[in-house]
Simulated assay, not measured.
Amino acid sequence: MRVTQGAFSFLPDLTDKQITSQVQYCLDNGWAVNLEYTDDPHPRNTYWDMWGHPMFDIADAAGVMMELTACRKAYGDRYIRMSAFDSTHGWESVKLSFIVNRPKEEPGFRLRRQEMEGRNIRYTTETYATDKPEGERYSG
């Protein structure tokens, strides 16, 4: 099952050349870019671990791509997301976010059904990845 979060998730994975183009677009618009990684891609897990600091002062996509290469070297077996923030007054929010790295195998999600009072039914989405402890979720 392919995790679909952020822009471009329903497309084939972007090449590094395509990622570089998107990064340069963000930088040309004055947006700060940052990288985050996780081994728990649950849709409600919005707080991924940050790689370094947001790159407010980088003007060339090559600098961001260098950080992405380092992040992939350290966490290539996890999901890595790139986000761009508009820090101008009145916005101060994410303008673009997309996955730039995925584990080789994406375990997917299960849907748990719970019978509640009366005829109510509650559904919960859980990732299969969390069946293993953190740090072991994508290793053989």
Rank of each mutant, 00 (worst) to 15 (best):
D13F: 07
D13N: 12
D13Q: 11
D13T: 13
L14N: 09
L14R: 11
L14G: 11
T15H: 02
D16S: 07
K17W: 05
K17H: 07
Q18A: 14
Q18G: 04
Q18K: 09
I19Q: 07
I19N: 09
T20W: 02
S21T: 15
S21I: 11
S21K: 15
S21N: 12
S21Q: 15
S21Y: 06
Q22S: 05
Q22A: 06
V23N: 00
Q24C: 03
Q24G: 02
Q24D: 08
Y25P: 13
Y25K: 14
C26E: 05
C26N: 05
C26A: 14
C26K: 01
L27T: 08
D28C: 01
D28Y: 00
D28S: 03
N29F: 04
N29H: 14
N29V: 04
N29S: 12
G30K: 00
W31Y: 15
W31S: 00
W31Q: 02
A32S: 15
A32D: 08
A32P: 03
A32N: 03
A32Q: 02
V33S: 04
V33P: 08
V33H: 01
N34F: 11
L35E: 10
E36C: 14
E36M: 11
E36Q: 13
E36R: 09
Y37D: 11
T38N: 13
T38M: 10
T38G: 14
D39E: 15
D39T: 12
D40Y: 12
D40R: 12
D40C: 09
D40V: 14
P41Q: 04
P41S: 04
P41G: 05
P41I: 04
H42L: 11
H42P: 10
P43H: 06
P43I: 08
